[in-house]
Design a protein around this nucleic acid. Structure first.
Lengths: 110, 110
DNA sequence: AATATATATCGTAATATTGCAATATATAAA
DNA sequence: TTTATATATTGCAATATTACGATATATATT
């Protein structure tokens, strides 16, 4: 096996999982942190910030893009990457909603 | 390789990544959804809800527990699993903070 | 004590991910 | 047009993940 059985879950569950998975690597969290830190969103210098080889960074950027978390525009020889706010909100909303539900319960059985 | 280079990232980045990774599988999102849906947090019936074999579910529960997302108490022959609200809040706070930073920027360059 | 029930662990096959060197591509500058 | 620069793609080795059958463990019931 080794492949995830996506068929047996709802589209929503799969979508949240895809986004969470994309965020499930410290390099990709570091990329997001960096995108938030810099004023401009031209980010070729990510390679200088994170101590990973350029192809590795490129691969991580691709995964974030595939998951819809960042967007990229070609801008000359550099590439402008930035966070897709809408996608992030979907993710955020899911967890805020989870919190609301948890507060309503207050089970404390564990 | 295949192993993540955690040494080059901050503890915070690693922590968020570990939690996101644990949430990066639809079965584990489905487990969380189910934990929120049922009134009690005794969850042996997850196996009946999700169409995966019992050892697979058990493995997913273990990963959620290792990431600190759920807690489990033995309760007779069954096990009481529930969401660790504090852990979830750490995660949630990270993304809410991200949103705040994004709103301040309003770059819209992509 | 014997049996039933619930959950965990082990072992393993199939597949995915991580990281990088080498190389390709594509624009900018000279 | 040649050269420099920035990013992507390919190919590959090391490792991790997913899923499950078989089996272990531990409590509950009879």
């Amino acid at each position: 096996m080794g492949a995830t059985k996506t068929e047996i879950f709802t589209p929503k569950q799969n979508q949240i999982a895809i986004m969470a998975k994309a965020l499930g690597h410290p390099a990709r969290i570091a990329i997001i942190d960096y995108l938030l830190k810099v004023d401009t969103c031209i980010c070729g210098d990510i390679v200088n910030e994170i101590k990973l080889a350029q192809p590795t960074i490129s691969q991580h950027l691709k995964e974030l893009k595939n998951a819809g978390i960042i967007k990229g525009n070609i801008s000359g020889t550099a590439i402008c990457y930035c966070i897709d706010e809408k996608a992030l909100q979907t993710f955020q909303k899911y967890f805020n909603n989870m919190e609301t539900k948890l507060e309503k319960k207050k089970l404390n059985c564990c």
